[in-house]
């Protein structure tokens, strides 16, 4: 059984970050958070971590609409790293546009698409799925 030690949240909305952290804490998550407010900051920080394979986050929650580098652009850059390690990444967006949901299916790196607002039940499902994964 795996444990979740580090969760990365990439979102420009402070309220979402606040509520996400709260919900995770209330769901008994005791690890650390790594937070970025846009895709570029996240990519620049995460790239060396993934290359060295040290202290990589166990879970990434990625927003789509962000300034500077949005979620899709982040994904495109992230794929270019050609990582062999399995990354658990969820898109968390308020978009219910079918175009976005269809587009997400084209990225095999994406583990799922969560429509905001997130609630405890769906977060628990995700963390549980991760823990049970071999």
């Amino acid at each position: 059984m795996k444990t979740i030690n580090l969760i990365c949240i990439i979102d420009d909305d402070p309220i979402f970050i606040f509520t996400a952290k709260k919900v995770l804490r209330l769901s008994d998550f005791g690890g650390d958070f790594l937070v970025f407010n846009n895709g570029e900051d996240a990519f620049n920080h995460l790239k060396p971590l993934y290359i060295d394979d040290t202290e990589v986050p166990d879970l990434i929650f990625l927003d789509l609409n962000m300034p500077i580098m949005d979620g899709w652009q982040f994904l495109d850059e992230f794929i270019k790293l050609k990582l062999s390690k399995v990354v658990t990444l969820y898109i968390v967006s308020s978009s219910i546009d079918p175009v976005d949901i269809e587009k997400a299916k084209e990225y095999e790196k994406i583990s799922g698409f969560i429509i905001k607002p997130i609630d405890k039940a769906s977060l628990r499902k995700i963390t549980k799925k991760f823990i049970l994964k071999k």
């Binding site: 909305d13 309220i15 509520t19 308020s94 219910i96 546009d97 607002p117 609630d119």
Partner: peptide
């Protein structure tokens, strides 16, 4: 409407839910 209003109302619902629990 789909993007912006939804994210705001989503935040409001979440905050209220958390407030009630916290």
């Amino acid at each position: 409407v789909s993007h912006n209003l939804r994210s705001h109302t989503g935040n409001l619902s979440m905050l209220l839910e958390l407030l009630q629990e916290d």
